[in-house]
Write a protein that binds this DNA or RNA. Structure first.
Lengths: 216, 216
DNA sequence: TAAATGTTGACTTTTTTAGTCAATTAAATA
DNA sequence: TATTTAATTGACTAAAAAAGTCAACATTTA
């Protein structure tokens, strides 16, 4: 599992959780805008470790990058995709559940979704690239599966259900975005996590509107 | 007008439009992810000009950056904000009009909105920073003005109009985003501009849904 | 205590950076 | 046409930043 090029990648997995995820998050944030623009100096500074340690675990910057893609995909698979119940009658419930799962993952890995949707921008071919492609296909497949399984008779007859789903999808994304005021390393895990229930309540109100307006 | 630090900024304004905007767009795209990460070498390569010319016009990278902020603000002011009619009864029409204006501006300056909403991330204080702050305040003010002026009695009584406006706002943003498949320099100004009317029709359908579902 | 493992940060070499400038081309003017 | 003026180039420099190394130090484990 994961990139085998550098043996010590394995050792990295056995680090204490807090430290491991601090490094992962720092790396993801730095790689957000492409492989070339990322600086390992910035990563170690943000992660609060020495440069030697980073290269002890990953050997090269390229290897770290590949490892990161695989690791991020694995997280999203096991902690997001696999947990989505695609067989729900009420599509609003399904989308709501997805938004919740996404928030849970983002709490621990604040930029993981942005990282994975933005990587392809530059950089060469690598085994991780193939995984990434499959992963992205899977992501769109889930959406269409949910749509296939849901009960379209619940919708008002004078509107196109597919378009409604788009609207709900975009709204949930916009809502989540508006709550992520600034993604600076400092603000992560403070405000949001504390007022978690408040945010859920607020979002429930939007869901109510969807039910009232788009269903019969 | 504009940054006066380097006299030849003025000369830049008298360049032929095509060349001027090619340079501006290249610079905006490169500055998208912060001042420090931007490379003047990349800018000149993407803009198709020599390095000497860029520094002839702007003197320093910092000066170019400041100039760019001011210039971008000016564009959005005169070609977007000033053209918005905040006194409309039907808020869907108002938001629709805003989306159209935004698309028009984005056609000529593909990353101008992202550039201006992302700049504050790093970098020092400068006169342009002050402008930017005022500009962002103005941007939120426009939204609340539109909301104040619109006819809230048109809405269904069992829902919160403010939340509906959020939903519409997020949906229009999501829709626009889904149409901007990839913002690579090459793809700009091809597909989108040709099928412009098709896109408008598609968006009209979403607006229809809003009318049907959120109004009485 | 001794061996093994985890961790550091100053250091090196290479690449990239912002910025310069003498030389060239194109435009304008006479 | 000849001459001046302005626009434009790209090889160049000095400084900074880059990836990656390694001997030394710290901490666990046996």
């Amino acid at each position: 599992m994961y990139n085998e090029e550098h043996e010590d990648c394995q050792k990295f997995l056995h680090l204490e959780t807090e430290k491991r995820e601090r490094i992962l998050n720092a790396a993801m944030r730095e790689f957000l805008h492409g492989f070339k623009k990322a600086s390992t100096d910035n990563i170690v500074r943000e992660a609060g470790i020495s440069k030697g340690l980073l290269f002890h675990y990953f050997g090269t910057k390229e290897n770290l990058f590949d490892f990161l893609i695989d690791y991020a995909i694995d997280i999203i698979q096991t902690q997001y995709m696999d947990l989505i119940n695609v067989r729900q009658k009420d599509i609003f419930d399904a989308l709501w559940q997805m938004a919740l799962l996404k928030r849970d993952v983002s709490q621990r890995f604040p930029v993981i979704f942005e990282f994975l949707s933005g990587v392809y921008l530059d950089s060469k071919d690598c085994p991780a690239k193939q995984h990434l492609k499959k992963f992205k296909e899977l992501q769109t497949k889930i959406y269409s599966e949910i749509y296939e399984h849901c009960d379209k008779t619940l919708f008002r007859e004078d509107i196109d259900p597919q378009k409604v789903v788009d609207i709900v999808h975009w709204s949930l994304a916009g809502w989540a975005d508006s709550k992520t005021v600034s993604m600076t390393p400092e603000s992560v895990g403070t405000e949001m996590s504390e007022n978690y229930d408040l945010y859920l309540d607020e979002m429930k109100e939007y869901l109510d509107i969807f039910h009232k307006c788009f269903y019969k």
